[in-house]
Structures are given as C-alpha cells and as structure tokens.
C-alpha cells in the first residue's frame, strides 16, 4: 500500500527556492495528519549542502539526487529520476510547487505514473485521513474542492500561499544512485535577470502599475524599491510596450499571491483580478472612485497616483 509523503523541492544555481520550504512545511503537516513519514527530495549537482537547509522544516528523510545532468532543470532528466524514486518508495502523496518548473514537471510525472494531479492548489485539507485540495478555476471565479482517486496523488501548490513552518528534525539523508536516462533536451543558455529584485511570484509585496501610469513608472519603481517589492503591470501596460511581458499579472500573465498588492492606475478588469485575487491584502490607488478595482481591494485611495505615490514614498522613508 502506498504510504508516506514526498515533497519535491526546487533549486536553481544550488540555491533552494522559497516554494521548496512551502512544499516541505506543507508536506510535514500532511504527513502528520496521515500519521506518515515525510521525505524531502532535492535534485541537482553538488548539492549536499541543501539537505542541511531542509532539515529545519522537519522531513523524516531527505533524498539527495546528485548528478551533473541534474544541475539545471530539464523535463526529461528530472522526470526520469523522480519517477524511479517514486516507484521505489511508493508514496501516497507528492507535493511540489506550481512554479514554472513544478508545472512542467508535475504534468509530465502525472502522465508517466498515471496519477491524478491537482494543479496550483491554495489549500490542502485533511479530514479523517482524506485529502481535499482547493484550487481556483476559471481565473479564480470558481474555487473548486477536488479529491484524487488512487495513488500517488500529486499536488502542486501555488507559490507564496502556504506557510513556511520550522520544525527541526534529524532526518536520515540518503544519496540514491540515479539514472538520468536518455536525455533529449539540450540547454543552450540561461538568460537570467541580475540584481536582487524579488521575482513576482515570490515577492511579499508587489507594486503594480497600469494604463493610469501613462507609461511613467518612476514612482511605481521607487515605491517598489523602498519596500523591497517586485514591480507588476496590467496587460494594457505591457501591450503599450511600457513593461516586459514577464511583468504581466493576470489570466494571460502571472498568478501572484503576495502579502500586499498595490494596484496603481489599474481599473480592475476581470482578467487582471484573475492573477492577483489571492493576494492577502490589496491596496488600490485610482483617480476614479468608481473603478471596479475598489470592489476587490481592502484599502483604497481615490486620487491621482502621481500625487499619491510620492506621498506614500515619503511616508515609507519616514519609517526608516
């Protein structure tokens, strides 16, 4: 009988990504609820050190899959290695992040294992050993509760939603021999943005600007800098060429769940809301007090963003 919980972590350049800690913490909670063991899995090259870091979140066991071919994520190498580890341990539940990597991987893995997959979940509920997954659908207009039949059950969790909980243990660390198999994908180049700006999907705070900025992002960026926040944008702003596609929040852009989302000069179209409605707190700044964004916000300022933002920036500076 399948039992136990796997939490698949994610590293880039030898550094664990935040969603990994969310997956392991959630894995611990689920494993405790099921009275089962939690195994954290980390894949990469020369990554023993990462196991140390994962101990804090309470796995009973850590599997370190270390191979030169696992240094950077590729669908084929990661799926081959994980499918084998999963088949030999036979876990009942597999948790991973619904990040770019996790989405790519979990879909493939589910097909390989003929397993049910609940993608982009915002909550896992435990009820008498039964697991129910909560996932937004239709761009967040519907929140579905789903259950998965058979095993393993694969669940990909929306980044930035679940709590990171420290729970130190002395886990067994194993380094199984891995077979990366026949690899078809060749990585030619990784073009990464430099600098220490947080990534949109991982940021605690996002300051987002829409058409109301008229293309002038100076104040939006300054506020973001002051708050250590990421900058987001509406699709209109992207279509105007004011911001890159990677900044777009919404149904055809990124789905974000920061603690604080500050929407500046954004009307609040349904497709924009689809990407940010699970933010914990939403502040809207719009000169039109009838703008639909206000009906979805927690706090609103009716006013011209070019007056309001500098005033907010001045207040933030006072806190330092």
């Amino acid at each position: 009988m399948a039992q136990g919980v796997f939490a698949i972590t994610e590293q880039r350049d030898g550094e664990l990504r935040k969603v990994s800690f969310e997956a392991v913490s959630e894995g611990r909670r689920v494993a405790d609820g099921l009275g089962a063991d939690l195994t954290a899995v980390v894949l990469g090259s020369g990554i023993e050190g990462l196991a140390e870091e994962l101990k804090k979140y309470g796995p009973d066991k850590i599997l370190v899959a270390d191979d030169a071919a696992l240094a950077d994520y590729t669908t084929d190498a990661y799926t081959n290695v994980l499918a084998e580890l999963i088949q030999s341990s036979d876990p009942a539940v597999i948790i991973t992040g619904a990040s770019a990597q996790g989405k790519d991987l979990s879909g493939r893995l589910a097909a390989r294992l003929d397993a049910g997959l609940a993608m982009d979940c915002v909550e896992i509920k435990l009820d008498n050993g039964n697991l129910t997954y909560t996932r937004p659908m239709f761009g967040g207009k519907i929140v579905a509760k789903v259950e998965i039949e058979g095993s393993p059950q694969i669940v990909a969790i929306r980044p930035n939603v679940m709590d990171i909980v420290e729970n130190s243990k002395e886990p067994a660390i194993e380094k199984p021999a891995v077979q990366v198999g026949d690899l078809k994908t060749k990585i030619i180049e990784m073009k990464m943005e430099t600098g220490d700006k947080p990534e949109l999907t991982e940021a605690d705070i996002i300051v987002s600007g829409g058409r109301g900025t008229g293309g002038d992002y100076a104040a939006v960026e300054e506020l973001a800098n002051e708050l250590g926040a990421a900058v987001g944008a509406s699709r209109s702003a992207v279509d105007e060429g004011w911001r890159p596609h990677s900044d777009q929040v919404g149904q055809t852009g990124k789905t974000v769940s920061p603690n604080l989302y500050v929407a500046c000069g954004i009307s609040g179209a349904i497709q924009h809301l689809a990407g940010m409605s699970t933010s914990k707190y939403i502040v809207a700044i719009n000169k039109d007090e009838e703008a639909p964004i206000f009906s979805k916000a927690d706090f609103g300022i009716a006013g011209d963003l070019f007056e309001v933002l500098p005033a907010i920036i001045a207040e933030v500076k006072k806190l330092k």
Partner: peptide, 21 residues
C-alpha cells in the same frame, strides 16, 4: 472516470468591503 474528482464548486470568499482612506 475522473481521477481528479470535483467535490464542490464554490464562489471565492468575498473580501470585506473596501476601506476608502
């Protein structure tokens, strides 16, 4: 024959009414 069984559809939780500053 879904492996992923839909148990319920709900509307998203409503936020509290906006506090206009």
């Amino acid at each position: 024959n879904r492996k992923v069984k839909i148990k319920a559809f709900n509307l998203p939780p409503e936020r509290q009414a906006v506090r206009m500053i």
